[in-house]
């Protein structure tokens, strides 16, 4: 047997014999707060600057209300329930559109990445559609589907489709041909190769598409709700601005930002679970 030099990560912290528990805990706490400060310090500073600038009259508080006024408006809207209906309808629109885009784009992308003739036939029209802004097409969708839910969901679906589709296609096409050849050597048939090599190999790229798609869905959600809606977070942003309820407007913007962060975080943790191999670097 030969010896192999093996490097393994060391998971246990070294403990110096002489130190008491108290100093150890203090040092750990110090290190933890240093970590938080280096990561969130700039953000906290930004918020503090905003608060000071708005409450001391450096900026017009009617346009940039202080943080505490925004938090109060947010609390009132959530606890009082007036914003909950808007959140629900917005989630429904974005969720439906996103789910439909996933159901269409991933299977279609898997086929297009595998079967050259399908890709050749569909690519020109997809490139044309992709380069045409979904917002430019929104009036067309309104003409076709009316000003109700259908056109809103459809425009979100439309815009979400492309990042998902293109990333799925490239995920399939970028699977290492050497791995495909390896599977072939062991006698794997086309379907087995697809299931055991192509599909898992494309998952990271599909997740890139999912995350881009989620961002796109929220973006189009707001745009569509700003035109011809009477409910939804996007509508609230516009409506509060018209009525000069500026803290409420910022509260709605904060909700949007939170939705984006939550969606992204959910996808990231799902990816971590499905792709443990890709971040299991020793």
């Amino acid at each position: 047997m030969t010896l192999q030099h093996i490097e393994r990560p060391i998971g246990i912290g070294r403990r110096d014999g002489g130190n008491g528990f108290g100093t150890e805990a203090l040092r750990l706490a110090g290190r933890a707060s240093a970590r938080i400060l280096s990561r969130y310090g700039l953000l906290l500073g930004f918020l503090a600057l905003w608060q000071v600038a708005a409450s001391s009259g450096w900026v017009n508080a009617a346009v940039l209300p202080p943080i505490d006024a925004i938090v109060a408006a947010l609390w009132k809207g959530l606890a009082g329930g007036s914003l909950l209906g808007d959140i629900a309808i917005s989630l429904q629109r974005a969720g439906l559109a996103f789910a439909a885009a996933v159901l269409v784009a991933i299977p279609l992308g898997l086929v297009m990445g595998q079967v050259r003739s399908v890709e050749t036939a569909l690519d020109p029209i997809l490139q044309l559609f992709r380069q045409t802004s979904a917002l430019a097409l929104y009036p067309v969708f309104i003409l076709l589907l009316g000003l109700g839910e259908a056109s809103k969901v459809f425009v979100i679906f439309w815009a979400t489709l492309f990042p998902l589709l293109l990333n799925t296609i490239s995920g399939v096409k970028e699977v290492d041909p050497k791995l495909l050849e390896m599977a072939r050597v062991y006698g794997a048939r086309r379907l087995t190769i697809f299931r055991r090599v192509v599909l898992p190999g494309a998952v990271p790229s599909i997740f890139v598409g999912l995350r881009l798609g989620a961002t796109t869905a929220l973006l189009l959600l707001i745009a569509s709700e700003m035109i011809g809606a009477n409910k939804g977070i996007g509508f609230q942003v516009m409506n509060a601005q018209y009525n000069f309820q500026i803290p409420l407007m910022f509260a709605a913007i904060v909700i949007l930002a939170a939705l984006g962060l939550i969606a992204n975080q959910a996808l990231v943790s799902l990816q971590r679970r499905l792709c443990r191999w890709s971040n299991a670097v020793g």
């Binding site: 050497k178 791995l179 050849e181 062991y186 055991r196 898992p200 191999w277």
Partner: peptide
């Protein structure tokens, strides 16, 4: 027959 290539050609997710 079985082939051993220059690269290990392992599936990274397994």
């Amino acid at each position: 027959r079985a082939v051993i290539f220059q690269e290990p050609r392992l599936l990274p997710w397994l």
